[in-house]
Amino acid sequence: MTRSVRVLLFATAREAVGAASVDWEVPASGSTVRALLAGLVEEHPQLEPILKGSRLACNGVYVRGRRARIGPGDEIAIHPPYSGG
């Protein structure tokens, strides 16, 4: 049974971590976006300035505020500022 969330990294976030996604273990009882980001920054300090300007989404829906709950099996996307066109 999965005990992790999948973090999808794009653009500068992907370059900072050196991977397009990482699997991050969370307690079966769940966690918060804030705790996930703190853990990621601890392991990849170069992510910190990028996260400040990024939008986050959980399972394809934008997350408002970093107290949002996440749990095993969730997919969290980190979106640095968009630059399409």
Partner: peptide, 14 residues
Amino acid sequence: LIEELKRDVPIWKS
């Protein structure tokens, strides 16, 4: 559409 696409759609260029 082009202004909103650039501002609000998760696409990136490098």
